[in-house]
Simulated scan of single mutants.
Amino acid sequence: MVNLIPMTVRGAEKLRKELKQLKNIKRPRIIIEIAKAREHGDLKENAEYHSAREEQSFCEGRIKEIELKLSNCQIIDITKIPNDGRVVFGSTVTILNIKNNEIFTYQIVGDDESDFKKNLISINSPMSRGLIGKTINTIATIFTPSGNVEYKILKIDYV
């Protein structure tokens, strides 16, 4: 049985865009670089050739990785899910750190789209695991290496 990879609509589109760029722009450019490097003669000591082949290997690996993820993804459009007041994949959660009164807002997304600087946290992060299923005004205890941190859930949006 294949494990489906949860992904937002935006995350799937981002991967499709990267795949298109890799296949239509980067791959052809690398092929041209390899052909040019071959023209220089002896391949054993041809640094340009080896560099281009290495880049080709990384590119092909990423293409396969993206194709596998897209073929095994479950795209979740949070805007089409009725908001039942629970934190779910794709929801945007505003929380209050009870200890220091700091307020944070995060969206729970797939691994590939997580970006802490943009407040996008992975579904597999300790924060997400502690928030999933909780409702407004409940306390979520997040287990961190430096100790447990308690957050009060202030707002849950399905946008």
Rank of each mutant, 00 (worst) to 15 (best):
L15H: 03
L15P: 01
L15C: 01
K17M: 13
E18D: 09
L19T: 00
K20Y: 15
L22P: 08
N24Q: 15
R27I: 05
R29E: 07
I30V: 05
I31K: 15
E33L: 11
E33I: 00
I34L: 10
I34R: 09
I34Q: 06
K36C: 00
K36V: 07
A37T: 00
A37H: 06
R38E: 05
R38V: 01
E39G: 04
E39H: 01
H40F: 08
G41T: 01
G41P: 00
D42E: 09
K44M: 10
K44I: 07
N46G: 06
N46F: 07
A47S: 08
E48A: 03
E48I: 00
E48G: 00
Y49I: 05
H50Y: 08
S51A: 10
A52K: 03
R53C: 11
E54N: 13
E55R: 15
E55H: 14
S57P: 15
F58K: 14
F58N: 08
F58I: 15
C59P: 12
G61I: 07
R62D: 13
R62E: 14
R62F: 06
I63G: 11
I63D: 01
I66F: 02
I66H: 07
E67C: 07
L68F: 15
K69A: 08
K69Y: 10
K69M: 03
L70I: 02
L70E: 01
S71H: 06
N72G: 03
N72E: 10
N72W: 01
C73K: 08
C73H: 13
I75E: 12
I78K: 05
T79R: 11
K80R: 14
K80Q: 11
I81F: 06
I81D: 02
I81N: 05
N83W: 10
G85Q: 03
G90Y: 06
T92L: 13
T92N: 06
V93P: 15
V93H: 09
T94K: 14
L96I: 02
L96C: 00
N97Q: 02
N97R: 03
I98E: 01
I98A: 00
N100A: 01
N100P: 12
N101S: 08
E102T: 00
E102D: 06
E102M: 07
F104H: 05
Y106K: 00
Y106W: 12
I108H: 04
V109S: 02
V109P: 09
G110A: 05
G110M: 13
S114G: 08
S114Q: 12
K117S: 15
K117F: 09
K118C: 09
